[in-house]
Design a protein around this nucleic acid. Structure first.
Lengths: 147, 147
DNA sequence: GACGAGGTTTACGTTAACGTAAAGTGCTTG
DNA sequence: CAAGCACTTTACGTTAACGTAAACCTCGTC
């Protein structure tokens, strides 16, 4: 248990400013339950751009957030290409020209519409799941009351 | 505008009992904006089971509903395998044994949890879209007031 | 009876999103 | 210094969900 002033980080993640923390690829992989391969692949696809220390990738808060958003997008069925489209424009925003910005607004409106449809889909699917559930329980009841 | 008593169906879909209507593969394809290939593929994957008239596929209401549900599931990111799992159990329900029914209830609970997570994901993603949208509009404003 | 519009089967091609394996680099620890 | 661990690159493999093409049937119609 000797740790005078070494840089052992992973033990207590909340112990430091959190804003200037860095992560290794393995750390991130464990945090989000994906493989390092997946993270490297996302980089190759232009969704992440970690810096290097020698040849090792160094991830900052910004990268972690991006990964989080990417995975969220994936869970909602967006393709990596779609996600990248937004991410790239977001990055280019500060000095983006008006055309690009308007295009970005279009994309955002599009995504929003998409989300609305998903909300409706979820609502409908819940109703049907309820229905199937009901029927299943009824059949179970008639098979004997030890449900 | 001659239509004495012929069987011209597609023109006015709501004109007949609707319950005993049948559909060709092309009709369904147009209704849902998919290709016939997709519909055949779903059959091959055990998601549809149309009857035949000669060698042509005949789809009934039941099949149409299934296709609708399948596509909805897809929009929510479920794989065809997952969708089939529910569909098959639903079909086997009337005479399904207790183990199967309980398994079905498990799957349903699982799907429900999945939907809940998606709801949360959508909520969060909407917030971020709003955020990006805001920023984009601000930058646009500063570039000149002709947004 | 040629033909065009729909349908059919068979089969190979394609894309996205990684998995997996091989071979090498660099630290630190017994 | 050998071993082990975490990381790296390169490259080929895999799966799901269709697309696409070819070659055939079967109507109603001109």
């Amino acid at each position: 248990m000797s740790r005078p002033s070494s840089q052992a980080q992973e033990a207590n993640p909340d112990a430091l400013p959190k804003q200037h923390r860095t992560y290794s690829i393995g750390e991130l992989a464990r945090m989000f339950e994906v493989t390092p391969r997946t993270i490297r692949f996302y980089e190759q696809e232009g969704l992440l751009a970690p810096t290097r220390q020698g040849q090792k990738r160094i991830y900052r808060e910004k990268d972690r957030v991006r990964l989080k958003l990417t995975l969220r997008g994936k869970r909602l069925g967006f393709s990596l290409a779609e996600i990248r489209e937004v991410v790239e424009m977001y990055d280019a925003m500060p000095d983006g020209n008006a055309r690009q910005l308007k295009r970005l607004l279009e994309i955002l409106a599009d995504k929003r519409a998409n989300l609305e449809r998903q909300l409706e889909d979820i609502r409908l699917m819940k109703l049907e799941i309820d229905d199937v559930d009901q029927r299943a329980r009824e059949v179970l009841r008639q098979l004997g009351d030890d449900a």
